[in-house]
Each structure stands twice: as structure tokens, then as C-alpha cells.
């Protein structure tokens, strides 16, 4: 098979060389094409191709917009999300205008000034006025974008919510674990040296940790209630990406990172909006972390306070889990 492919390629190249030799011989006999000179006809053809290209390219962009425009992320499901989306849309609109206009001007210049015999270019070497114009206009536009961007960044990164619910998102190859602070809303201490069977997060003796609730597979949030995520990693860098909430932060071994937001749309509401009763918010890993990086996920359920309370009541605290484990060990012995 491989040999056959190689043979075909070799034969193809030989044939191409032959064809080219014959072609260049015959074109020389006709006194034809010179590779260093672009004829007027070729020049016209290339200029027309640029115009065709631009039309096709814009057509392609519009086609994509129609086909994929509604497949991008749905409306943001967090309090800060719309701010980010606004900034995104304004920037996108601005750069789309720049992209379209510069391309029209570019291709217009190409078409209008395509080479002809006898034509002479205009000797126009510089103009401080023009340079000033296209230094100052981008500078002004950018100052606006920078200022707006920094305001949003400040709002998102320093939200200053009081009594946010504390959740630890703990990452390892290749899954996530969520730990709630429990009744005291405070996480117990942990140490990577304490990790072992039945203690994936390395919990150590700490009163604050007794009521912590550890869950896998999915975790729950309360609509309109601020949540402060604390991220940790046990092995390599991961990134906790929650696209629907416009939230992302890396999980770095050896340090704790944080991100805080307020979910605003319950899973149920979002399912109705999207007309998809299987839809779930997801947490995914967005920093290359190994072979199963592409499948490191956890579902996020946003619900009302009452629903959340019911769910929490069903979960075991760290103390209860340990007690169960101890009992099991006793029975086994």
C-alpha cells in the first residue's frame, strides 16, 4: 500500500516534469510567456480575480454568519456576563467595520492600479498628514476600548459580593471534584501529602472541614446568589472554563486561584430558552493536561434556593463520609 502510493507520486512527478518541459518548449517556440514579465492581459486577469475573491470571501463570511451565527454561546447566564458580551459585541462591530472597509479599499486599489504597458506610477513617498491621521484615529479608538475594557475587567475581577457561597473546584487528571464549605461556608484545610484512599482532596484534621460537602459528576449553584470559586490542582495546570457564565480561571498546582460570579439563569430556564430539554451547563478543562484533556468535565446545575436546599440535604458531609468508611472498616475486620 505505502509502496504503491510512493510509486504513484514518483510517476506523477516524472510525468509533470515531462509535461512542463514540453509546455515550456512549445511556449518558447511561440515566443510566449516570460516568467519575469506580467503581460497586460495577465495583469487584468489577476485584478479581476482579486475582485472575484473579495466577493466570494465576503459571501463566505456572510454564509458562515447565517449558518453558524446562532450556534455560538447563548446569552450569558451570569450577572457579569452581559457586560463582557457588550464589550465583545462593540469590539467585534468595530473590527468588522475595519476589516470590511480596509479590504474594500485594498482590492479597489489593486483593481484600479493594475499594471498596463505605458502607465507610470505616481511618485508619492510620504505625507506627514496622512501618517498623523492613521496614527491618531486608531489611538483614539483604542483609548476608548482600553478604558471600557479596564472598567469591565475591574468589575468582573473585583466583584466585592458579601457572603458569597464558597466552593472549591479541585482538578486532577482527568476529572473535577467540587467541595462546598458546608454550614459554616468555610473550607477545611488540606495538604497534598494527606491524599490517599478515600481522601482524594487531601483533607486534614480541621473543624472547619467536618461539614464540607464533596461532590463529583455535577455541582449545584443557586440562582442570583454569588458564588466564590477557589481552584486547586493536584498534578498539572488545568483551566476551569464555564463558557455559559463567561468564567474561566487556571488551576495551578501549588497555589490557589479564585473567580467569583452570580448565576442568573437556572438550568430549567435555559433549557426553555434554548428549546433543548437535555441542555446542561458545563465545566470543562481548557488547559492541555494530558491524553483525556478533551473529556474532563462536570455538569453545573443552577436552581432556586429551595431546590438547592433539598439537594444539599441529600449530600453527605466529610464527617459522615468518614464515619461510614470507619464503620465499613470495622465490619470488614
Amino acid at each position: 500500500m505505502t509502496l504503491l502510493i510512493i510509486a504513484v507520486i514518483v510517476l506523477f512527478v516524472i510525468a509533470a516534469v515531462r509535461v512542463m518541459s514540453i509546455y515550456s518548449l512549445s511556449s518558447e517556440m511561440r515566443g510566449g510567456s516570460k516568467d519575469d514579465i506580467v503581460t497586460d492581459a495577465e495583469s487584468k486577469n489577476q485584478a479581476s480575480l482579486w475582485v472575484l475573491f473579495l466577493i466570494a470571501f465576503f459571501g463566505f463570511c456572510i454564509w458562515q454568519l447565517v449558518k453558524y451565527g446562532d450556534k455560538v454561546l447563548p446569552e450569558a447566564a451570569s450577572a457579569h456576563g452581559p457586560q463582557i458580551d457588550n464589550l465583545f459585541n462593540i469590539t467585534l462591530a468595530l473590527i468588522t467595520v475595519v476589516f470590511v472597509l480596509t479590504h474594500i479599499v485594498l482590492v479597489y486599489q489593486i483593481y484600479k492600479n493594475s499594471g498596463r504597458t505605458g502607465r507610470k506610477a505616481v511618485y508619492f513617498a510620504h505625507s506627514n498628514k496622512l501618517e498623523l491621521i492613521w496614527t491618531i484615529i486608531p489611538a483614539l479608538a483604542l483609548s476608548g476600548l482600553i478604558a471600557y475594557g479596564l472598567v469591565v475587567w475591574n468589575d468582573v475581577i473585583y466583584p466585592g459580593n458579601k457572603d458569597a457561597m464558597v466552593i472549591e473546584l479541585y482538578s486532577k487528571q482527568f476529572d473535577w471534584t467540587a467541595r462546598y464549605g458546608g454550614k459554616d461556608n468555610a473550607l477545611g484545610k488540606s495538604d497534598f501529602r494527606a491524599i490517599g484512599a478515600g481522601n482524594d482532596l487531601g483533607m486534614v484534621e480541621d473543624l472547619k472541614g467536618d461539614d464540607d460537602i464533596i461532590v463529583k459528576g455535577e455541582f449545584h449553584l443557586v440562582k442570583d446568589k454569588a458564588v466564590l470559586f477557589k481552584f486547586r490542582s493536584r498534578d498539572v495546570i488545568h483551566s476551569a472554563y464555564m463558557p455559559h457564565f463567561r468564567a474561566q480561571m487556571n488551576c495551578v498546582p501549588g497555589m490557589e486561584t479564585t473567580f467569583e460570579f452570580i448565576p442568573t439563569i437556572t438550568t430549567k430556564e435555559m433549557r426553555e430558552k434554548l428549546k433543548d430539554d437535555k441542555f446542561n451547563y458545563v465545566l470543562l478543562c481548557n488547559k492541555i493536561c494530558g491524553a483525556a484533556h478533551y473529556n474532563m468535565q462536570m455538569d453545573i446545575i443552577v436552581e432556586t434556593q429551595e431546590e438547592f436546599n433539598t439537594w444539599v440535604a441529600e449530600q453527605k458531609t466529610w464527617m459522615q463520609t468518614q464515619a461510614t468508611a470507619a464503620t465499613a472498616e470495622l465490619i470488614n475486620n
Binding site: 506580467v38 485584478a47 486599489q109
Partner: peptide
């Protein structure tokens, strides 16, 4: 973006009233 924009505009202006050899 500012020096980059300057470069892009300067390229386009170089084409203006040229005798473009494709």
C-alpha cells in the same frame, strides 16, 4: 495596534496610483 495600523495603511497607500505588477 497603532504601529500595526500605520503599517497596514502605508501598504495600501503604496498601491494607490501605482502600476501594479502582479
Amino acid at each position: 495596534a497603532i504601529p500595526s495600523a500605520v503599517k497596514a495603511f502605508n501598504y495600501i497607500t503604496t498601491l494607490w496610483k501605482g502600476n501594479l505588477q502582479f
